[in-house]
Every structure is written in structure tokens, then in C-alpha cells.
Design a protein around this nucleic acid. Structure first.
Lengths: 123, 123
DNA sequence: ATAATTGTATTAAGTACTTAATACAATTAT
DNA sequence: ATAATTGTATTAAGTACTTAATACAATTAT
């Protein structure tokens, strides 16, 4: 994985987001085991402490469970995952719409812009 | 203006973005004068140094001009503004699409999601 | 039994960001 | 003429984040 991390934002929230994306896409299916903190840190090219921080947050949120010495796993609560996913999707859309509206685009213009870029992505 | 600043990102890039949105929407029209650094800082409830940093960056980018003792103004180069606006729009859409695709949505699902939220926003 | 692996904790250092308090020269406003 | 305003610069302090180097107990693997 590329783990595309940008420099205009602290790393750990970016790690949280990327891991969430992998959970929501099924890359890490419900109940599956996660790599160790150290392995994930190395994979993302960050310090283990930073990855630990991201994982601790994900556990607080209930998306993953920690088993003291046998590693971590994704929650088996499929509804929990589905809800978090919907929440993230809505937040992304909301933020996007807000910016577009602040720039003066109306609903039609917004839909046309994004439609044309989706079409363009099909190539 | 609310100047909605979030805490998961440094302030100055957020200031840059918000000011850009105001330029692109015409709140600050081409050639118009900007409030002083101190005034803008107070309005955004940040330190003048931080606002200065954001404005300096906007000047580097060519969106605003600085007149040593008579303040700053928006560039009169309308094409410059238009290009920056398009660039920001495309970047927003690109980032959004990337996240949606990473979550496993296909093009139809993405369009349907955003269409329903745009419709919902009409209320 | 022994070694390796797990999450976790701690201490130290460096960096980037933000605020605060000033100060200055040049211009503008009165 | 004088005061106020402009962008700019500097110094100091505090905070959050990140990395690095270790260490530990508990479990798992060999």
C-alpha cells in the first residue's frame, strides 16, 4: 500500500482515516486479524508510537479490538462498521458541498462538475 | 464570517483555504482591497503572525498583491483567479472520488450518493 | 524450556505551529 | 505637523506532534 500521507496535517489522523478506508472496503474484513503495531508502522513508514496512537483511537471508536498479547482484530459488529462508513461518506460529501457552495456553485453546477469528473475517470 | 477552523490541521493552511474561497466566490472581488492583517486576524480570532503567514503564502501564489503601507488587494488578473479556482475544484473532487473508490464504491454509487445529498440539501 | 512476538509504557530530543509582546520605517489620515 | 495605520521583523515561550531508544509482562511459537 502507498499510505499516501500529506504534510499539511498531522500523521496520526491520516493513519486513522486510511485504516478506516481499508476496513470499510473490506481489505480488513470483520473479525480479521490486523498486522502488529510494529509491522503496520514499518509498512506506513512511521514510528510505532504514532501507529499505536492511531490504533488506540480506532479501538476507542469501537472499530477494532485489542487482545493484549495476540494482536488486534477488526470488530465483528457489521452494523457498527456500516454505520461508521455511512458517517464518513456523509461527512466527506458535506464538506465537499460546503466548499463548493462557498465558492458560489449552485446545485446543478456541482452535480455537473462531479459528473464530468466521474465520467472522465472512466476513460 | 464564522471562519470555521478545525483542530486536526494547522491553522494557517485553513486560513489560506478560507480566504481563497472568499476570493473565488467574489466576496473579495478582483482588485478590491483586503482588510489589514491585524483586522483579519482579529476577525478570524487568530494571532496576526498566523494571518500574516497565510497572506504571505497567498501573495506567493499570486492571488493577492501587497502595497507596503497601504495594505493588500486581490489580483486583477481574472484568468489567474479562474485558473486557481478550477484547480481547487478539481482537487476537491479528485480527493473525494479517491476516498470513495478506496471504500469500494463504483461510479454509479458515488453519483447516486452525492445526488441524493444535493437533493436533500435543497430541502 | 526457550525464544520470539504481542501491546504497552517511559524518557528524551527535535520540529513545526501558535501566541504574545514589541518595535520599526513608510505611508496615510487628520 | 502630528497621529494613526500599513506590512514587516524579532524574540521568547508554550504546545502538539513525531521520532528514537528502551524496557516490561504476558502470551505464542518453536
Amino acid at each position: 500500500m502507498p499510505w499516501d500521507l500529506k504534510s499539511d496535517r498531522p500523521i496520526y489522523p491520516q493513519l486513522i482515516e486510511q485504516i478506516e478506508l481499508m476496513i470499510f472496503s473490506g481489505t480488513y474484513p470483520p473479525g480479521s486479524k490486523l498486522p502488529s503495531v510494529r509491522d503496520m508502522a514499518q509498512d506506513a513508514a512511521v514510528n510505532p508510537n504514532t501507529m499505536q496512537r492511531a490504533l488506540a483511537r480506532l479501538e476507542e471508536d469501537g472499530l477494532i479490538n485489542t487482545h493484549r498479547t495476540s494482536g488486534r482484530s477488526i470488530t465483528e459488529d457489521v452494523n457498527m462498521i456500516k454505520n461508521s462508513k455511512s458517517k464518513l461518506v456523509e461527512e466527506q460529501i458535506r464538506e465537499f458541498l460546503e466548499k463548493m457552495q462557498k465558492m458560489g456553485f449552485d446545485q446543478n453546477e456541482i452535480l455537473m462538475s462531479i459528473t464530468s469528473m466521474v465520467e472522465g475517470a472512466k476513460q
